[in-house]
Design a protein around this nucleic acid. Structure first.
Length: 589
RNA sequence: GGUCCGGUGGUGCAGUCUGGUCAGCACGCCGCCCUGUCAAGGCGGAGGUCGCGGGUUCAAGUCCCGUCCGGACCGCCA
């Protein structure tokens, strides 16, 4: 037998057992006589002792870091005073009776599992070494727990896992497609799916009333710390339900996965309307782990003589205990606010008895000063930050400052889920005054806004809400979903509002509209970005830390060298001709 | 497409502003010593086109221009 146990799972209970373990040499401590080897495998690390007279002694002196070894020996409790509290296996050690080198290793180009952080380029180029370290071992295993729990919960609710194609037609709208040339039909291309969105709706028409899939999605947009070209979506769709049903099952799946993956019970899952999220947190993905809520000061300054506050909105936040902050810091905050689009930023330091220390205090009446302190709940030693201007700008600026000033690190402050509901149907107007859909154009309008949608024009339409919902965790947008339109008349109404003619619609979404003509059930769905979810649960700020083989910000894979030029013969077969080719990159060796 | 930060032995960094013993530290690696360490310890050693190209200068890791790569962000991500 190659091995009887995993190295990292040996405990006091194993004492006395003769075992065989295999793994990598994490460290070697050679005392000249006795040699200690820390042997690492998938379960962790255990100390192997090779006594001078033991059969493997010669081998032990020769072994080097990252050699793959097999050790046979007796598990024994460590002698008095040599227990290692830091290690789960620290109460025992394996006394080697046989030591074999299964594979030699060159000195690794990056440190493995150490405290020294290597350059990210090198970590990706030698990902197979980086993967041996604690961090990625833990993160990827935890991610697997998330996948497993999501599947288990969905299976328990009678959902059917259905796979959808990777080679599909390019859809207009949305992100840039990755495309794949067709060999059989030169000049034509497949697109890789940005999401299974339209297929899952077809599955509803096809009578699968509860679908889910953990699906790979691809979007050709610049990668970021929370975004790769390819990513996984936990995707669901349900028939004969409303949004509440969807939110309920997604909540159960997400909370259960979070709890089992981290061993930590998430806080209560809250709910907030998009409008309230913007007003209270200045963002549609509020981080509820901390306060500093935005306060509307419009009433306080309704009749103010201070010109800067004669604005559509005056809002403020109270930063507790920061009243002593340095002037330079305040100047930096003002600069930041201006970069974010504010006309300016008013700061106030609250002194004893509520006295306000601020460049603008002298322009404010006593009633305004009192009202301000009262509205913000300010006390001695606090710092107050106020922004006046357009409501959306004031909210955005203060929402950003709120994060700058008080957002906890990603791995602190617990897990705070929040549903953000009733997103606007449209996110703005394009150059020709047509509304731009905030979600995809099949999102069901809010029932109370149907009239508005039918009669509204231009700007008025921006107030129309949709039956959509986002799930947010600690300020990260995990995913979004909506109730879909399933009736032709309403779909036509939305298309009209969007300026899409029936002919356009037929060209762009014809197959879905066709399907809907044959009896479409009311349906609704959701999708969670698994990478982001796993990153937050792992306490990582970068999703590359939960992706086994990630790409860099320029879309390269330093391990395989992708992307690469194509062989001329391949191009010919595909009927492709490269018109302008950038300088050929150096091969990665 | 843009802004910002970074690129110095295998790795992580200092040195760049103020050009001239500035090629230095730690880890790793190699050798020797060492029987209870756990980031073992001691002694010794090898190892660097300072990302690349051009320019300024008597002299460039250091200043200027360009370029490549990595990262953060903006644009983009229905």
């Amino acid at each position: 037998m190659m091995r009887t146990h995993r190295a990292g799972e040996l405990r006091r209970d194993h004492a006395g057992a003769t075992v065989a373990v295999c793994g990598w040499v994490a460290t070697r401590r050679d005392h000249g006589g006795v040699v200690f080897l820390d042997v690492r495998d998938a379960a962790g690390v255990v100390q192997v002792v090779v006594d001078p007279e033991a059969p493997g002694a010669e081998v032990a002196h020769r072994v080097r870091s990252e050699f793959v070894v097999r050790v046979e020996g007796e598990v024994r409790p460590r002698p008095e005073g040599t227990v290692n509290e830091e290690l789960p296996t620290g109460e025992v050690e394996v006394a080697a009776q046989r030591l074999e080198v299964l594979s030699e290793a060159e000195a690794p180009p990056i440190p493995i599992g150490g405290r020294q952080e290597a350059d990210e380029l090198l970590r990706y180029r030698y990902r197979y070494l980086d993967l041996r370290g604690d961090r990625l071992q833990r993160n990827l295993r935890q991610r697997a727990v998330v996948n497993r729990v999501l599947r288990r919960v969905m299976d328990g609710h009678g959902f059917v896992e259905v796979e959808t194609p990777m080679l599909i037609a390019s859809m207009p709208e949305g992100a840039r497609d990755f495309v794949v040339p067709s060999r059989l039909q030169p000049g034509s291309f497949y697109a890789l799916p940005q999401s299974p969105q339209l297929f899952k709706q077809l599955l509803m028409v096809g009578g699968f009333d509860r679908y889910y899939q953990i699906a790979r999605c691809l979007r050709d947009e610049d990668p970021r710390s929370d975004r790769q070209f390819e990513f996984m979506q936990f995707d669901i769709e349900m028939s004969f339900v409303d949004g509440e049903d969807v939110m309920a099952v997604v909540t159960e799946a997400a909370v259960t996965a979070a709890e089992e993956a981290t061993g930590e019970l998430p806080g209560a899952v809250e709910r907030i309307t998009w409008h309230d999220a913007m007003e209270r947190y200045g963002t549609d993905k509020p981080d509820l782990r901390f306060g500093l809520e935005l306060v509307d000061l419009g009433e306080v300054f309704a009749a103010t003589e201070f010109r800067a506050f004669q604005a559509p909105a005056v809002k403020g936040i109270r930063v507790p205990g920061e009243g002593g902050v340095a002037r330079a810091r305040l100047d930096a905050l003002i600069e930041r606010a201006k970069q974010l689009g504010a006309a300016g930023l008013v700061w106030m330091r609250v002194g004893e008895a509520g006295a306000l220390d601020s460049p603008v205090a002298k322009f404010l009446s006593e009633a305004e000063q009192l009202g301000l302190v009262d509205a913000l709940g300010a006390g001695s030693g606090d710092l107050l930050l106020l922004v006046a201007g357009e409501r959306a700008i004031a909210n955005r600026v203060l929402g950003t400052l709120r994060l700058d000033l008080a957002r906890p690190p990603v791995d602190e402050g617990g897990l705070r889920f929040v549903w953000v509901v009733e997103f606007p149907l449209f996110e703005g107007l394009d150059d020709e005054g047509r509304p731009i859909p905030a979600h995809h154009p099949f999102t069901m309008p809010h029932p109370d806004d149907l009239e508005l949608l039918a009669s509204g024009q231009g700007e008025e339409l921006l107030a129309a809400r949709s039956q959509s919902y986002d799930l947010v965790l600690n300020g990260w947008e995990l995913g979004s979903g909506s109730v879909r339109i399933h009736r032709a008349d309403m779909q036509q109404q939305v298309f009209t509002a969007l300026g899409i003619t029936p002919e356009d619609a037929q060209v762009r979404f014809g197959f879905l509209l066709d399907a809907f003509r044959y009896g479409a059930p009311p349906h609704a769905g959701f999708a969670i970005g698994v990478d982001r979810f796993a990153a937050v649960l792992a306490g990582e700020e970068n999703i590359r830390e939960v992706v086994a083989f990630p790409k860099t910000q320029s879309g390269a894979d330093p391990l395989t060298g992708a992307p690469t030029p194509l062989d001329p013969a391949q191009l010919k077969e595909l009927g492709l001709q490269v018109v302008k080719r950038p300088e050929a990159k150096k091969p990665k060796s």
